[in-house]
Design a protein around this nucleic acid. Structure first.
Lengths: 214, 214
DNA sequence: GGTTAAGCGGACCGTCGGTCCGCATGGATA
DNA sequence: TATCCATGCGGACCGACGGTCCGCTTAACC
Protein backbone atom coordinates (compact mmCIF):
# COMPACT_ATOMS: atom_id res chain seq x y z
CA UNK A 1 0.00 0.00 0.00
CA UNK A 2 1.05 3.58 -0.55
CA UNK A 3 3.37 2.38 -3.25
CA UNK A 4 4.44 4.74 -5.92
CA UNK A 5 2.49 2.69 -8.39
CA UNK A 6 -0.88 1.06 -7.98
CA UNK A 7 -1.09 -2.71 -8.35
CA UNK A 8 -1.95 -3.87 -11.81
CA UNK A 9 -5.28 -5.60 -12.28
CA UNK A 10 -3.96 -8.99 -13.32
CA UNK A 11 -1.48 -8.90 -10.48
CA UNK A 12 -4.20 -8.34 -7.94
CA UNK A 13 -6.32 -11.10 -9.43
CA UNK A 14 -3.43 -13.49 -9.32
CA UNK A 15 -2.63 -12.61 -5.75
CA UNK A 16 -6.01 -13.65 -4.49
CA UNK A 17 -6.00 -16.72 -6.71
CA UNK A 18 -2.73 -17.83 -5.16
CA UNK A 19 -3.96 -17.17 -1.66
CA UNK A 20 -7.14 -19.13 -2.27
CA UNK A 21 -5.23 -22.00 -3.80
CA UNK A 22 -2.94 -22.06 -0.80
CA UNK A 23 -5.75 -22.35 1.66
CA UNK A 24 -7.43 -25.03 -0.36
CA UNK A 25 -4.26 -27.10 -0.36
CA UNK A 26 -3.76 -26.42 3.31
CA UNK A 27 -7.24 -27.66 4.06
CA UNK A 28 -7.00 -30.81 2.03
CA UNK A 29 -3.57 -32.00 3.10
CA UNK A 30 -0.88 -31.45 5.69
CA UNK A 31 1.32 -28.41 5.74
CA UNK A 32 4.02 -30.13 3.72
CA UNK A 33 1.41 -30.76 1.07
CA UNK A 34 1.62 -27.11 0.17
CA UNK A 35 4.49 -26.79 -2.25
CA UNK A 36 4.88 -23.77 -4.46
CA UNK A 37 4.54 -25.90 -7.56
CA UNK A 38 1.22 -27.20 -6.42
CA UNK A 39 -0.04 -23.82 -5.34
CA UNK A 40 0.90 -22.31 -8.67
CA UNK A 41 -0.71 -25.14 -10.59
CA UNK A 42 -3.93 -24.98 -8.63
CA UNK A 43 -4.08 -21.22 -8.94
CA UNK A 44 -3.55 -21.49 -12.68
CA UNK A 45 -0.48 -19.35 -12.49
CA UNK A 46 3.22 -19.68 -13.16
CA UNK A 47 5.65 -20.46 -10.41
CA UNK A 48 7.53 -17.24 -10.95
CA UNK A 49 4.37 -15.30 -10.29
CA UNK A 50 4.06 -16.75 -6.84
CA UNK A 51 7.60 -15.77 -5.98
CA UNK A 52 7.25 -12.32 -7.50
CA UNK A 53 4.22 -11.74 -5.33
CA UNK A 54 5.29 -13.31 -2.04
CA UNK A 55 9.04 -13.61 -2.18
CA UNK A 56 9.26 -17.07 -0.70
CA UNK A 57 7.29 -19.90 0.70
CA UNK A 58 7.52 -18.32 4.12
CA UNK A 59 6.24 -15.06 2.73
CA UNK A 60 3.26 -16.75 1.18
CA UNK A 61 2.25 -18.42 4.41
CA UNK A 62 2.94 -15.24 6.29
CA UNK A 63 0.60 -13.34 4.03
CA UNK A 64 -2.16 -15.85 4.55
CA UNK A 65 -1.62 -15.75 8.28
CA UNK A 66 -1.73 -12.00 8.26
CA UNK A 67 -5.00 -12.07 6.38
CA UNK A 68 -6.43 -14.35 9.02
CA UNK A 69 -5.31 -12.18 11.89
CA UNK A 70 -6.02 -8.80 10.43
CA UNK A 71 -9.21 -8.38 12.43
CA UNK A 72 -7.47 -9.12 15.67
CA UNK A 73 -4.72 -6.69 14.88
CA UNK A 74 -7.18 -3.93 14.21
CA UNK A 75 -9.23 -4.71 17.26
CA UNK A 76 -6.13 -4.60 19.39
CA UNK A 77 -4.78 -1.33 18.14
CA UNK A 78 -7.96 0.62 17.65
CA UNK A 79 -11.00 -1.34 18.74
CA UNK A 80 -13.10 -1.14 21.88
CA UNK A 81 -12.00 -2.58 25.20
CA UNK A 82 -11.15 -5.08 26.46
CA UNK A 83 -9.16 -5.91 23.33
CA UNK A 84 -8.45 -2.34 22.43
CA UNK A 85 -7.01 0.43 24.54
CA UNK A 86 -8.91 1.46 27.61
CA UNK A 87 -9.24 -1.69 29.65
CA UNK A 88 -6.84 -2.63 32.44
CA UNK A 89 -3.72 -4.35 31.19
CA UNK A 90 -4.65 -7.62 32.76
CA UNK A 91 -7.98 -7.78 31.01
CA UNK A 92 -6.52 -6.70 27.73
CA UNK A 93 -3.92 -9.37 28.00
CA UNK A 94 -6.43 -12.11 28.65
CA UNK A 95 -8.65 -10.89 25.88
CA UNK A 96 -5.72 -10.79 23.50
CA UNK A 97 -4.69 -14.33 24.33
CA UNK A 98 -8.24 -15.46 23.78
CA UNK A 99 -8.30 -13.83 20.39
CA UNK A 100 -4.98 -15.26 19.39
CA UNK A 101 -6.09 -18.64 20.66
CA UNK A 102 -9.13 -18.62 18.45
CA UNK A 103 -7.10 -17.84 15.42
CA UNK A 104 -4.47 -20.40 16.29
CA UNK A 105 -7.00 -23.15 16.88
CA UNK A 106 -8.53 -22.54 13.51
CA UNK A 107 -5.21 -22.37 11.73
CA UNK A 108 -2.99 -24.87 13.45
CA UNK A 109 -1.82 -26.43 10.22
CA UNK A 110 -1.07 -23.10 8.64
CA UNK A 111 0.74 -22.08 11.78
CA UNK A 112 2.86 -25.20 11.76
CA UNK A 113 3.71 -24.80 8.11
CA UNK A 114 4.70 -21.21 8.68
CA UNK A 115 6.96 -22.07 11.58
CA UNK A 116 8.58 -24.74 9.49
CA UNK A 117 9.15 -22.35 6.63
CA UNK A 118 10.42 -19.50 8.76
CA UNK A 119 12.85 -21.59 10.70
CA UNK A 120 15.30 -19.17 12.26
CA UNK A 121 13.74 -15.95 11.10
CA UNK A 122 10.55 -16.49 13.01
CA UNK A 123 11.51 -14.02 15.69
CA UNK A 124 12.34 -11.31 13.19
CA UNK A 125 9.04 -11.69 11.42
CA UNK A 126 7.21 -8.37 11.72
CA UNK A 127 4.03 -10.11 12.69
CA UNK A 128 5.71 -11.92 15.56
CA UNK A 129 7.43 -8.76 16.66
CA UNK A 130 4.18 -6.94 16.79
CA UNK A 131 2.43 -9.55 18.90
CA UNK A 132 5.44 -9.73 21.11
CA UNK A 133 5.58 -5.99 21.56
CA UNK A 134 1.94 -5.81 22.47
CA UNK A 135 2.07 -8.70 24.89
CA UNK A 136 5.20 -7.61 26.61
CA UNK A 137 3.88 -4.10 27.15
CA UNK A 138 0.81 -5.55 28.79
CA UNK A 139 2.82 -7.90 30.94
CA UNK A 140 5.08 -5.09 32.00
CA UNK A 141 2.09 -3.12 33.08
CA UNK A 142 0.23 -5.94 34.78
CA UNK A 143 3.22 -7.42 36.56
CA UNK A 144 6.12 -5.00 36.56
CA UNK A 145 8.31 -7.32 38.60
CA UNK A 146 8.47 -9.91 35.84
CA UNK A 147 10.82 -10.01 32.88
CA UNK A 148 8.13 -8.89 30.50
CA UNK A 149 10.03 -9.55 27.32
CA UNK A 150 10.81 -13.12 28.16
CA UNK A 151 7.38 -13.84 29.58
CA UNK A 152 5.88 -12.59 26.35
CA UNK A 153 8.13 -14.92 24.38
CA UNK A 154 7.10 -17.75 26.65
CA UNK A 155 3.41 -17.07 26.18
CA UNK A 156 3.80 -16.87 22.42
CA UNK A 157 5.93 -20.00 22.35
CA UNK A 158 2.86 -21.96 23.26
CA UNK A 159 1.16 -20.96 20.02
CA UNK A 160 2.93 -23.67 18.14
CA UNK A 161 0.93 -25.32 15.41
CA UNK A 162 2.11 -28.81 16.18
CA UNK A 163 1.53 -28.36 19.91
CA UNK A 164 -1.97 -27.10 19.33
CA UNK A 165 -2.79 -30.12 17.27
CA UNK A 166 -1.20 -32.31 19.89
CA UNK A 167 -3.29 -31.01 22.78
CA UNK A 168 -6.56 -30.52 20.93
CA UNK A 169 -8.89 -33.48 21.11
CA UNK A 170 -11.48 -33.64 18.36
CA UNK A 171 -14.36 -33.30 20.75
CA UNK A 172 -13.06 -30.18 22.46
CA UNK A 173 -11.67 -27.79 19.89
CA UNK A 174 -11.48 -24.88 22.31
CA UNK A 175 -9.44 -26.62 24.92
CA UNK A 176 -6.18 -25.05 23.87
CA UNK A 177 -7.43 -21.52 24.39
CA UNK A 178 -8.79 -22.42 27.81
CA UNK A 179 -5.46 -23.91 28.76
CA UNK A 180 -3.65 -20.80 27.64
CA UNK A 181 -5.95 -18.65 29.68
CA UNK A 182 -5.41 -20.66 32.83
CA UNK A 183 -1.68 -20.60 32.19
CA UNK A 184 -1.79 -16.84 31.93
CA UNK A 185 -3.83 -16.61 35.09
CA UNK A 186 -1.29 -18.69 36.94
CA UNK A 187 1.47 -16.46 35.65
CA UNK A 188 -0.23 -13.22 36.50
CA UNK A 189 -1.47 -14.49 39.79
CA UNK A 190 -5.09 -15.31 39.35
CA UNK A 191 -6.89 -12.33 40.68
CA UNK A 192 -10.30 -11.62 39.34
CA UNK A 193 -11.51 -10.74 35.93
CA UNK A 194 -11.79 -14.20 34.59
CA UNK A 195 -14.77 -14.85 32.45
CA UNK A 196 -17.95 -13.41 33.76
CA UNK A 197 -19.25 -16.62 35.23
CA UNK A 198 -17.01 -16.99 38.20
CA UNK A 199 -15.81 -13.54 38.91
CA UNK A 200 -16.81 -13.74 42.51
CA UNK A 201 -13.41 -13.89 44.09
CA UNK A 202 -11.36 -10.82 44.00
CA UNK A 203 -7.85 -10.61 45.12
CA UNK A 204 -5.74 -7.56 45.46
CA UNK A 205 -2.44 -8.98 46.40
CA UNK A 206 -0.40 -7.59 43.61
CA UNK A 207 -1.63 -4.18 42.85
CA UNK A 208 -3.40 -4.29 39.59
CA UNK A 209 -2.61 -1.05 37.95
CA UNK A 210 -5.37 1.36 37.32
CA UNK A 211 -6.81 1.45 33.85
CA UNK A 212 -4.24 3.10 31.77
CA UNK A 213 -2.87 1.82 28.61
CA UNK A 214 0.13 2.06 26.47
CA UNK B 1 20.81 -52.25 23.61
CA UNK B 2 19.40 -55.61 24.55
CA UNK B 3 19.14 -56.42 20.89
CA UNK B 4 19.08 -59.98 19.78
CA UNK B 5 22.40 -59.43 18.07
CA UNK B 6 25.38 -57.42 19.19
CA UNK B 7 26.47 -54.53 17.00
CA UNK B 8 29.16 -55.36 14.54
CA UNK B 9 32.53 -53.70 14.98
CA UNK B 10 32.55 -51.66 11.80
CA UNK B 11 29.00 -50.57 12.42
CA UNK B 12 29.90 -49.22 15.84
CA UNK B 13 32.93 -47.45 14.46
CA UNK B 14 30.85 -45.88 11.73
CA UNK B 15 28.21 -44.77 14.16
CA UNK B 16 30.60 -42.69 16.19
CA UNK B 17 32.28 -41.38 13.05
CA UNK B 18 28.94 -40.13 11.78
CA UNK B 19 28.06 -38.56 15.11
CA UNK B 20 31.39 -36.79 15.29
CA UNK B 21 31.08 -35.57 11.74
CA UNK B 22 27.64 -34.25 12.51
CA UNK B 23 28.79 -32.23 15.46
CA UNK B 24 31.71 -30.83 13.54
CA UNK B 25 29.41 -29.65 10.78
CA UNK B 26 26.99 -28.28 13.32
CA UNK B 27 29.77 -26.32 14.97
CA UNK B 28 31.15 -24.84 11.80
CA UNK B 29 27.93 -23.83 10.11
CA UNK B 30 24.23 -23.29 10.73
CA UNK B 31 21.80 -26.11 11.25
CA UNK B 32 20.90 -26.22 7.58
CA UNK B 33 24.56 -26.73 6.83
CA UNK B 34 24.18 -30.27 8.09
CA UNK B 35 22.98 -32.30 5.16
CA UNK B 36 23.24 -36.06 5.11
CA UNK B 37 25.47 -35.94 2.08
CA UNK B 38 27.92 -33.71 3.86
CA UNK B 39 27.82 -35.72 7.04
CA UNK B 40 28.46 -38.93 5.16
CA UNK B 41 31.30 -37.40 3.19
CA UNK B 42 32.98 -35.95 6.26
CA UNK B 43 32.59 -39.19 8.15
CA UNK B 44 34.12 -41.09 5.23
CA UNK B 45 31.05 -43.24 4.94
CA UNK B 46 28.34 -43.92 2.41
CA UNK B 47 25.04 -42.17 2.56
CA UNK B 48 23.18 -45.41 2.96
CA UNK B 49 25.12 -46.15 6.09
CA UNK B 50 23.89 -43.02 7.75
CA UNK B 51 20.30 -43.91 7.00
CA UNK B 52 20.74 -47.51 8.04
CA UNK B 53 22.08 -46.34 11.37
CA UNK B 54 19.78 -43.41 12.14
CA UNK B 55 16.76 -43.84 9.95
CA UNK B 56 16.42 -40.22 8.96
CA UNK B 57 17.88 -36.81 9.37
CA UNK B 58 15.66 -36.29 12.38
CA UNK B 59 16.88 -39.55 13.88
CA UNK B 60 20.48 -38.51 13.47
CA UNK B 61 19.98 -35.22 15.24
CA UNK B 62 17.88 -36.92 17.85
CA UNK B 63 20.68 -39.35 18.57
CA UNK B 64 23.17 -36.56 18.99
CA UNK B 65 20.81 -34.69 21.24
CA UNK B 66 20.26 -37.78 23.31
CA UNK B 67 23.98 -38.23 23.70
CA UNK B 68 24.26 -34.67 24.95
CA UNK B 69 21.49 -35.09 27.49
CA UNK B 70 22.27 -38.56 28.68
CA UNK B 71 23.89 -37.31 31.87
CA UNK B 72 20.89 -35.21 32.75
CA UNK B 73 18.54 -38.08 32.12
CA UNK B 74 20.49 -40.36 34.42
CA UNK B 75 20.82 -37.70 37.09
CA UNK B 76 17.10 -37.15 36.99
CA UNK B 77 16.05 -40.75 37.22
CA UNK B 78 18.66 -42.12 39.57
CA UNK B 79 20.99 -39.42 40.78
CA UNK B 80 21.15 -37.56 44.07
CA UNK B 81 18.78 -34.74 44.98
CA UNK B 82 17.85 -32.15 44.06
CA UNK B 83 17.88 -33.46 40.49
CA UNK B 84 17.12 -37.00 41.41
CA UNK B 85 14.34 -38.39 43.58
CA UNK B 86 14.20 -37.31 47.17
CA UNK B 87 14.00 -33.55 47.01
CA UNK B 88 10.71 -31.64 47.16
CA UNK B 89 9.02 -31.37 43.80
CA UNK B 90 9.54 -27.66 43.57
CA UNK B 91 13.29 -27.94 44.02
CA UNK B 92 13.54 -30.87 41.66
CA UNK B 93 11.66 -28.92 39.07
CA UNK B 94 13.91 -25.91 39.31
CA UNK B 95 17.00 -28.07 39.25
CA UNK B 96 15.72 -29.88 36.21
CA UNK B 97 15.01 -26.69 34.33
CA UNK B 98 18.49 -25.47 35.17
CA UNK B 99 19.98 -28.64 33.81
CA UNK B 100 17.93 -28.54 30.67
CA UNK B 101 18.78 -24.88 30.26
CA UNK B 102 22.47 -25.59 30.36
CA UNK B 103 22.17 -28.21 27.69
CA UNK B 104 19.94 -26.06 25.57
CA UNK B 105 22.23 -23.06 25.77
CA UNK B 106 25.15 -25.13 24.64
CA UNK B 107 23.21 -26.76 21.83
CA UNK B 108 20.88 -24.14 20.50
CA UNK B 109 21.81 -24.79 16.91
CA UNK B 110 21.41 -28.52 17.26
CA UNK B 111 18.11 -27.95 18.97
CA UNK B 112 16.87 -25.72 16.20
CA UNK B 113 17.96 -28.17 13.53
CA UNK B 114 16.21 -30.99 15.33
CA UNK B 115 12.98 -29.06 15.65
CA UNK B 116 13.13 -28.23 11.99
CA UNK B 117 13.70 -31.86 11.06
CA UNK B 118 11.07 -33.27 13.37
CA UNK B 119 8.37 -30.89 12.30
CA UNK B 120 5.12 -32.44 13.40
CA UNK B 121 6.49 -35.48 15.15
CA UNK B 122 8.28 -33.50 17.78
CA UNK B 123 5.70 -34.25 20.41
CA UNK B 124 5.83 -37.97 19.77
CA UNK B 125 9.57 -38.06 20.07
CA UNK B 126 10.40 -40.35 23.00
CA UNK B 127 12.88 -37.87 24.34
CA UNK B 128 10.31 -35.11 24.42
CA UNK B 129 7.77 -37.39 25.97
CA UNK B 130 10.14 -38.30 28.71
CA UNK B 131 10.99 -34.71 29.62
CA UNK B 132 7.34 -33.86 29.47
CA UNK B 133 6.38 -36.74 31.69
CA UNK B 134 8.95 -35.81 34.27
CA UNK B 135 8.08 -32.14 34.27
CA UNK B 136 4.38 -32.63 34.41
CA UNK B 137 4.64 -35.03 37.33
CA UNK B 138 6.65 -32.44 39.22
CA UNK B 139 4.24 -29.66 38.36
CA UNK B 140 1.33 -31.80 39.44
CA UNK B 141 2.99 -32.38 42.76
CA UNK B 142 4.14 -28.83 43.34
CA UNK B 143 0.96 -27.13 42.14
CA UNK B 144 -1.90 -29.58 42.01
CA UNK B 145 -4.39 -26.92 41.04
CA UNK B 146 -2.69 -26.31 37.69
CA UNK B 147 -3.15 -28.19 34.47
CA UNK B 148 0.15 -29.95 34.84
CA UNK B 149 0.27 -31.44 31.36
CA UNK B 150 -0.23 -28.15 29.63
CA UNK B 151 2.06 -26.23 31.94
CA UNK B 152 4.77 -28.75 31.21
CA UNK B 153 4.26 -28.27 27.50
CA UNK B 154 4.45 -24.53 28.01
CA UNK B 155 7.68 -24.74 29.96
CA UNK B 156 9.23 -26.98 27.35
CA UNK B 157 8.00 -24.79 24.52
CA UNK B 158 10.44 -22.19 25.65
CA UNK B 159 13.37 -24.48 24.88
CA UNK B 160 13.29 -23.55 21.25
CA UNK B 161 16.65 -23.34 19.56
CA UNK B 162 15.84 -20.21 17.61
CA UNK B 163 14.34 -18.49 20.63
CA UNK B 164 17.37 -19.28 22.72
CA UNK B 165 19.62 -17.74 20.13
CA UNK B 166 17.31 -14.79 19.90
CA UNK B 167 17.38 -13.97 23.61
CA UNK B 168 21.00 -14.85 24.32
CA UNK B 169 23.35 -11.91 24.05
CA UNK B 170 26.98 -12.85 23.45
CA UNK B 171 28.13 -11.36 26.70
CA UNK B 172 25.66 -13.24 28.87
CA UNK B 173 25.40 -16.82 27.72
CA UNK B 174 23.50 -17.97 30.79
CA UNK B 175 20.76 -15.47 30.57
CA UNK B 176 18.28 -17.84 29.03
CA UNK B 177 18.47 -20.27 31.91
CA UNK B 178 18.02 -17.49 34.42
CA UNK B 179 14.97 -16.27 32.54
CA UNK B 180 13.50 -19.73 32.52
CA UNK B 181 14.03 -20.04 36.23
CA UNK B 182 12.30 -16.80 36.98
CA UNK B 183 9.47 -17.78 34.68
CA UNK B 184 9.07 -21.01 36.60
CA UNK B 185 9.15 -19.16 39.87
CA UNK B 186 6.39 -16.88 38.69
CA UNK B 187 4.35 -19.84 37.60
CA UNK B 188 4.80 -21.81 40.78
CA UNK B 189 4.30 -18.76 42.88
CA UNK B 190 7.67 -17.59 44.00
CA UNK B 191 8.14 -18.74 47.53
CA UNK B 192 10.56 -15.89 47.50
CA UNK B 193 10.63 -14.79 51.12
CA UNK B 194 10.67 -18.03 53.00
CA UNK B 195 11.49 -21.36 51.56
CA UNK B 196 8.99 -23.91 52.62
CA UNK B 197 6.73 -21.05 53.57
CA UNK B 198 4.70 -19.80 50.76
CA UNK B 199 2.44 -16.91 51.41
CA UNK B 200 0.14 -17.63 48.57
CA UNK B 201 -3.31 -19.00 48.55
CA UNK B 202 -4.26 -22.30 47.25
CA UNK B 203 -7.17 -21.62 45.11
CA UNK B 204 -9.21 -24.38 43.72
CA UNK B 205 -10.63 -22.75 40.72
CA UNK B 206 -11.34 -25.75 38.62
CA UNK B 207 -8.39 -25.87 36.34
CA UNK B 208 -8.15 -29.58 36.26
CA UNK B 209 -8.52 -30.86 32.79
CA UNK B 210 -8.04 -34.49 32.19
CA UNK B 211 -4.30 -35.05 32.47
CA UNK B 212 -4.20 -36.64 29.12
CA UNK B 213 -2.99 -35.47 25.83
CA UNK B 214 -3.62 -36.93 22.62
C1' DG C 1 38.31 -72.21 5.24
C1' DG C 2 33.53 -71.88 4.58
C1' DT C 3 29.13 -69.88 5.32
C1' DT C 4 25.96 -66.27 5.93
C1' DA C 5 23.65 -62.51 7.63
C1' DA C 6 24.83 -57.89 8.61
C1' DG C 7 26.68 -54.03 6.85
C1' DC C 8 28.28 -51.05 3.22
C1' DG C 9 28.40 -47.31 -0.44
C1' DG C 10 27.05 -44.47 -3.88
C1' DA C 11 24.26 -44.23 -8.10
C1' DC C 12 19.81 -43.08 -8.46
C1' DC C 13 15.09 -40.95 -7.76
C1' DG C 14 11.46 -37.55 -7.16
C1' DT C 15 10.66 -33.18 -5.19
C1' DC C 16 11.64 -29.06 -3.41
C1' DG C 17 12.49 -23.79 -3.11
C1' DG C 18 14.23 -20.48 -5.85
C1' DT C 19 16.10 -18.03 -10.31
C1' DC C 20 16.03 -16.29 -14.94
C1' DC C 21 14.70 -14.28 -19.02
C1' DG C 22 12.16 -13.89 -23.37
C1' DC C 23 7.49 -12.66 -24.10
C1' DA C 24 2.68 -10.73 -23.24
C1' DT C 25 -0.12 -7.11 -21.64
C1' DG C 26 -2.40 -3.50 -18.73
C1' DG C 27 -3.11 0.98 -18.71
C1' DA C 28 -1.45 5.77 -18.91
C1' DT C 29 -0.61 9.05 -22.59
C1' DA C 30 -1.37 11.63 -26.74
C1' DT D 1 -7.58 4.61 -31.32
C1' DA D 2 -2.68 3.92 -31.86
C1' DT D 3 1.62 3.98 -29.39
C1' DC D 4 4.66 2.68 -25.79
C1' DC D 5 7.00 0.47 -21.99
C1' DA D 6 7.12 -0.72 -17.17
C1' DT D 7 5.05 -4.30 -14.99
C1' DG D 8 4.03 -8.70 -14.70
C1' DC D 9 3.97 -13.41 -16.49
C1' DG D 10 5.24 -18.40 -16.91
C1' DG D 11 7.68 -22.39 -17.02
C1' DA D 12 12.25 -24.28 -18.25
C1' DC D 13 15.92 -24.62 -15.50
C1' DC D 14 19.08 -25.17 -11.40
C1' DG D 15 21.45 -27.17 -7.39
C1' DA D 16 20.52 -29.43 -3.32
C1' DC D 17 17.96 -32.10 -0.54
C1' DG D 18 16.11 -36.52 1.99
C1' DG D 19 15.49 -41.00 1.10
C1' DT D 20 15.77 -45.75 -1.50
C1' DC D 21 17.89 -49.67 -3.68
C1' DC D 22 20.75 -53.30 -4.65
C1' DG D 23 25.05 -55.61 -5.86
C1' DC D 24 29.22 -56.09 -3.35
C1' DT D 25 32.11 -56.65 1.03
C1' DT D 26 33.16 -58.28 5.36
C1' DA D 27 32.88 -59.47 10.31
C1' DA D 28 31.95 -63.08 13.12
C1' DC D 29 30.72 -67.63 14.18
C1' DC D 30 31.20 -72.82 12.95
Amino acid sequence: MADGRAERGDAARNRVAVLRATERLLAQGGGDHVSIDRVAALAGVGKGTVFRRFGSRAGLLQALLEERSKDLREAVTGGPPPLGPGAPARERLLAFLDGLGSIAEGNAILLAAHEQACAEDKYDDPSYRSWHGHLSALVAEARPELDAGFVAHALLAVFDGALIRHVTPPEDPRRFTRSVRSLALALLGDGAAGNGEDGRHLRAEVAAHAPEDR
